[in-house]
C-alpha cells in the first residue's frame, strides 16, 4: 500500500451517493479518434513549408561582416560615393526639423512674433543678408510687408554650409516664392566675411546689406 500522503483531507468522507452525483454530472472522457484529416490541411501544410524555405532563401541577407544588410544590391550601392542631393531636398529636411515650429508648415509664421517667409523681401532679396540672418540670428522688431514682428531667431551657425545653403534655397522657392539658388560657396563666404556673436537687429542689417543684390553683381 503506497498511498500518497494526504493534505488537509485525510480521507474522502463523502457518501457514495455524493460521489456518484459528482460523477453523474459529466461524461467519461471519450477516447480520441484517429481521422487522417482533410486533404486541404496537408496542402496548407505543404504550401506553408514551401513559403518558409522560399522566404529564408530570398531574404537571408548577408552572413558576412555586413549582416544588417537585407539585400545584396543595397550593399553594392552603399559602397559607391553617394550622389549629392539637390540643395532643395536638403533644405526641406532642415526646415522640417528646425524651422517649422516658428515659421510654420506653410511659411506664414505667427502674427506679432515670427515673421512670414512668404512674399518677404528678407527671404527673396539679397542672399548674403539671408545667409547672415541664418548664421547669426536676429533680435527685436522686424518689419515685414508693413507689419511689425518681435521675436528672437536663434543663430544656426552650427549647421553645415550645405544645410544653410539648402534651407535658404528651400524657403526662397517654396509657397509661391521664386528666387535664385543660394550656393554653398555663398554661405562659406558669408561665414568668413562677417564674424559676430550677437544676433542682428533690423537697423544693423539695413546698415550692412543692400535689400537687393545689384543686378550684374557677382553671384
Amino acid at each position: 500500500m503506497n498511498q500518497t500522503p494526504e493534505f488537509f483531507d485525510s480521507s474522502d468522507k463523502r457518501s457514495m451517493d455524493e460521489i456518484h452525483a459528482a460523477a453523474f454530472r459529466e461524461a467519461k472522457l471519450p477516447e480520441e479518434g484517429a481521422e487522417p484529416g482533410p486533404v486541404w490541411l496537408y496542402v496548407v501544410i505543404f504550401s506553408t513549408l514551401c513559403f518558409g524555405f522560399f522566404y529564408i532563401g530570398r531574404y537571408l541577407g548577408e552572413i558576412s561582416d555586413r549582416p544588417h544588410v537585407l539585400e545584396e544590391g543595397a550593399m553594392i550601392v552603399s559602397n559607391e560615393p553617394e550622389p549629392p542631393k539637390p540643395l532643395f531636398k536638403v533644405g526641406e529636411k532642415v526646415y522640417r526639423q528646425r524651422c517649422v515650429s516658428c515659421h510654420q508648415e506653410n511659411g506664414q509664421g505667427v502674427e506679432g512674433a515670427y515673421p512670414p517667409l512668404v512674399q518677404s523681401n528678407w527671404v527673396t532679396g539679397n542672399p548674403d543678408r539671408l545667409v547672415s540672418i541664418l548664421l547669426h540670428g536676429i533680435n527685436g522688431n522686424l518689419t515685414v510687408n508693413g507689419k511689425v514682428y518681435n521675436g528672437n531667431m536663434p543663430a544656426w551657425e552650427t549647421l553645415t554650409d550645405e544645410q544653410i545653403a539648402g534651407v535658404a534655397t528651400y524657403i526662397r522657392n517654396s509657397w509661391g516664392n521664386s528666387a535664385d539658388t543660394v550656393q554653398i560657396a555663398t554661405v562659406a563666404d558669408g561665414r568668413k566675411k562677417i564674424t559676430r556673436v550677437a544676433p542682428w537687429t533690423e537697423q544693423e542689417l539695413n546698415d550692412v546689406f543692400k535689400p537687393q543684390l545689384a543686378s550684374g553683381a557677382k553671384k
Binding site: 490541411l41 496548407v44 501544410i45 506553408t48 518558409g52 522566404y55 529564408i56 537571408l60 541577407g61
Partner: peptide, 25 residues
C-alpha cells in the same frame, strides 16, 4: 540585428500556420 536572424524568425512565424490550422481543424 543581423538580417538572417530576423528572416529565420519571420519564416518560423509563418510556419506557425501549421500547428494553428491543425489544432483548429
Amino acid at each position: 540585428v543581423p538580417t538572417w536572424f530576423v528572416t529565420i524568425s519571420v519564416a518560423a512565424s509563418v510556419m506557425m500556420i501549421i500547428p494553428v490550422v491543425t489544432v483548429a481543424v
